[in-house]
Each structure stands twice: as structure tokens, then as C-alpha cells.
Nucleic acid binder design. Structure first.
Length: 433
RNA sequence: UCCUCAGUAGCUCAAUUGGCAGAGCAUCCGGCUGUUAACCGGAGGGUUGCUGGUUCGAGUCCAGCCUGAGGAGCCA
């Protein structure tokens, strides 16, 4: 066998050579004495041309009855051809069927959402879904590389957490042997602060869980979040970092995943505009903008989906909103020294209606103030003794944020719904496959 | 939990005022040497989400339920 096994993404370097491609049959068109097989191998798609004259009657007949998603190995010569989708094709000399496929349920025609989600394990084979998952991969690696290059240490925080820190309504409870109840983490925030005191600049990156009965295009019950935290850092330091991180991810995806964005028919013009500096506005200004646009928004409230969209429309790139009312933010947010009713918090809103992608700020570093807050929020002090230790033993100003991976991917890909950004979405009424 | 919409062939949908259950794709058979979701001819394929009601007659009207979608609330 003179054929060299290769992959579709390397096909341009194989012109004129005999190669073998191992993949699956994506689509087939036949025309009498010639078959066009579109193969996919995980790295891309390529057209294989099977002519009766070249392969003989026996192989040719076999190639006429292949079901969609049949796994097969084709051997043949690579040729550049403008008529082929992708620009290259393989003149097949031999064909081996590895695994048959009959009545593949996802046909080239349209399907409904429920039908596709029930077959998510197959749906991810489609060109569009595979493109989204490649962008997701790029986003995740972009985040890791950026933070690692900036001197951040990955320090994982637990997924099983002990007490219900802020009420149990939005936490998933799981039996922990026969002596306790554990809750699936909603955020690594508190542990991150301890890690930052140990290592300076840290991040955690993993799945988080929210038992909110949200049924919208922006919510999953299980999603991935990256949370950097920095010792000796302020609100503006956290905002700077969030801005640089977002810019870096967008640049990287535009640089390395342009082909996927084309498959997704994503207009990249709005992404090209994502450069520093982002607009930074105060919550007070955001309220004015919303009211000037005629939205019934009152000072003190948190932004809903339509509010975030309206705000983002005001800017040509992501916008950072700072200093939200303390009452609508977490107990551990540090108050503004000049206006204690405000917190040193920041949200970054993505353009085009994709909403909040980053939320964070400066943390409360004073022991007495933190203790007050814990009492005000009716939280069990015992559960927070370890957290209070961080203020007993060398407390420093520190800040950080969380960024939701799926919302970023949905934005970059221009998706209607966040459910396509993760291989197996978990939603209010979706636990399978 | 609430509001709105939907459920008919494997899939996506149509079915006039309550009057014979239909099409495209998929599948199977046949044809075609440059197709791009190929095309052309033929065949098979139905508990109209479930339960009950009104009616000579219900996919269609009524009641309840189930499932899903979009949104609201909720969302460190």
C-alpha cells in the first residue's frame, strides 16, 4: 500500500500524492457512472470522486449504497479542483467500509430543536456544530494561554461545596454519603480569594451549576466559568484585566478560527471592532442611558436582558459598567469609600444583545465590615470562619471576576441560543443525552 | 411558578366553513460521467400527543392532562 494516511486539514500539502483518509460519509451524490462522496474526518470535509472506470464495478456498486455517516477509509490521489467544495478532491482508487450506517436520523433537510437536542450526540457531527465546538476550544485555550502568560496560576476550587452560603434555592443539592448534603458549586470565588493570598494571581476554570429555573436563550444549568483573582488589586485592575482578556480572545478566534466563523456565516465586522479601550461607564450613567431610551428602569435595579441589550447598542464594542448598588451585588463586594451605597463592582456587557459576559470587582478586605455583611445577610458565621481568616491574617486589597465561556462563544459565533455552545447542554428540561 | 405559541408519515410541514389523510425530504427499486441540501421516474410508509365530550360526521370545536418552544420572574 503506497498511500499515506493523512487528514483533511493537511490535504493542501498532498496534491498529486496517493493518500488514505479515514472518516465518515457526510453526504453522497450519484450520477450514473460517477459518485461524489463528501467525507468528514473531524478535521474537515473533502469530496471524494468514485468513478466506475477507476475502481471497477464491484467497488463502484458498493459505493452506491452507503448510508449517511458510514465510516470508511478511502485511498486515492489528491487533486486541486475548483469544482470541488473546499477546492481539493480525491480521485478514489480504493474504498474500505469500516462500519455501516443505516437510516441516520439527521438528514440534510431541516429538523426541529427538540429532535436535534434528543440526538445531540449525533448532531455534533454536523458541520455547523463542529465549527462551534472548535471555536469553543479556541476560546478556552485562549483564556488559558492569556492568563498563564500574565503569570496567573491555575488553582482549582471544589465542585462539591459544604454549606449553603446564600440560600439553597439556586444550588443543586446532592447527598454526600449518609452524613451530609453537598452543593454543586455556583462559583469558585471564595476559595479563589484564599488561593490569591497564597499565590498572588490565580484562576479557577471549571463547570459551575445554577439551579435557577431560567428558561431563556442565555441560560444553562451547567456552564463553564473562568475566574481570575488578584492580590493587591483594585476595581480598575480587574476591569483592565477583563478588557485585555476579552480583546485577546476575540483576536485569537479571528486569527485562528476564521474558517469556522465562515461556516457559521458570522459577520466578523463587529468582532474586528473589539479593541481597547472599552467604554467604562458608571452604573449611574447606565441608568441615564436606559431612561433616555425610554426604558422603564429605575435606579437601584439590576439589568434585565432587554436593558443589557439597549445599553450595549449604545457602544460599538463591549462596555464595562462599574459601581452597581451594593444591595444588588454579593455580600463580599467592597463598598465605594465615597458612596457606601455603591459597590466596587464591574460587569462587562457584550455587543449585539449577548448580555453580561463578565462580572466581578474588588472584594471586601476589612474584617469588621465583612463580619457585618455576613450578619446582615443572615449567613451562618461558622461556615465563613475560614473566609474571615483571610482578613485576619494579612488582608490586602484584592479583585477579580468571572467570565462565562458559553456566553462568549455564543457571542463570537453569533448564535441564537447558548445551547449550541457546549457539547451536551444542561437546561431546565434537558438532562439527556 | 406565570404568559404566549406549538404537537399530523422517520424528519420538516400542508389540509378551505366540521365533510375522501397530503407534499417535499429520508428509506427501498430504477435512470443519469461533474454533482454542490444534485436531478428524473416508481414503491412502501398514518393510534393526527393522551383522555373524555359535542356532532350524522372531529386533524379541525369544547374540557382536562402530557410534551416542547419563546419570553417573564429568577439569575454573586
Amino acid at each position: 500500500m503506497s498511500a499515506t494516511t493523512t487528514t483533511v486539514d493537511a490535504i493542501a500539502d498532498c496534491v498529486g500524492r496517493q493518500v488514505a483518509i479515514r472518516g465518515w460519509l457526510h453526504r453522497q451524490r450519484s450520477s450514473g457512472k460517477i459518485h461524489f462522496l463528501t467525507l468528514r474526518d473531524g478535521t474537515g470535509f473533502i469530496q471524494a470522486v468514485v468513478s466506475r472506470a477507476a475502481v471497477g464495478v464491484e467497488t463502484f456498486t458498493r459505493a452506491d449504497h452507503l448510508g449517511q455517516e458510514t465510516s470508511l477509509i478511502v485511498e486515492g490521489t489528491v487533486r486541486k479542483d475548483a469544482r470541488a467544495p473546499g477546492g481539493y478532491e480525491i480521485d478514489v482508487s480504493a474504498l474500505e467500509i469500516v462500519g455501516e450506517s443505516r437510516d441516520y436520523p439527521i438528514t440534510p433537510k431541516e429538523h426541529g430543536v427538540d429532535y436535534l437536542l434528543d440526538r445531540r450526540h449525533l448532531w455534533i457531527r454536523s458541520r455547523r456544530q463542529a465549527a462551534i465546538l472548535r471555536v469553543r476550544h479556541e476560546v478556552i485555550n485562549g483564556i488559558r494561554d492569556f492568563l498563564n502568560d500574565q503569570g496567573f496560576i491555575l488553582a482549582d476550587t471544589p465542585i462539591f461545596t459544604p454549606a449553603a452560603c446564600e440560600g439553597t434555592t439556586t444550588l443543586f443539592a446532592v447527598p454526600y454519603f449518609d452524613h451530609a448534603t453537598a452543593y454543586l458549586t455556583q462559583s469558585g470565588q471564595l476559595y479563589n480569594e484564599a488561593n490569591a493570598m497564597a499565590l498572588g494571581r490565580v484562576y479557577c476554570f471549571g463547570p459551575t451549576f445554577r439551579a435557577e429555573k431560567s428558561k431563556t436563550r442565555r441560560h444553562l444549568t451547567e456552564f463553564w466559568m473562568v475566574e481570575p483573582e488578584m492580590a493587591y488589586a483594585t476595581l480598575d485592575d480587574a476591569t483592565d484585566l477583563a478588557e485585555a482578556l476579552v480583546v485577546s480572545i476575540v483576536e485569537r478566534v479571528l486569527d485562528r478560527r476564521r474558517r469556522e466563523l465562515e461556516v457559521l456565516e458570522r459577520d466578523t465586522a463587529p468582532l474586528e471592532r473589539v479593541r481597547s479601550p472599552f467604554a467604562r461607564i458608571a452604573y449611574d450613567e447606565a441608568v441615564e442611558i436606559l431612561q433616555s431610551r425610554g426604558l422603564p428602569f429605575e435606579w437601584g435595579g439590576d439589568f434585565g436582558g432587554p436593558d443589557e441589550t439597549a445599553l450595549a447598542e449604545h457602544f460599538d464594542r463591549p462596555v464595562a459598567v462599574q459601581r452597581f448598588p451594593a444591595a444588588i451585588k454579593a455580600f463580599y463586594m467592597k463598598p465605594d469609600a465615597d458612596r457606601p451605597e455603591l459597590s466596587l463592582s464591574v460587569d462587562v456587557l457584550a455587543p449585539e444583545g449577548y448580555g453580561e459576559i463578565v462580572g466581578g470587582g474588588e472584594r471586601l478586605d476589612d474584617y469588621e465590615l465583612l463580619l457585618d455583611r455576613i450578619r446582615q445577610h443572615d449567613l451562618p458565621r461558622e461556615a465563613f470562619e475560614w473566609y474571615l481568616d483571610l482578613r485576619r491574617y494579612g488582608s490586602v486589597p484584592h479583585a477579580g471576576f468571572g467570565m462565562g465561556v458559553e456566553r462568549v462563544v455564543a457571542w463570537l459565533c453569533g448564535l441564537e441560543h447558548i445551547r449550541e455552545t457546549i457539547p451536551y447542554p444542561r437546561m431546565l428540561y434537558r438532562l439527556t443525552p
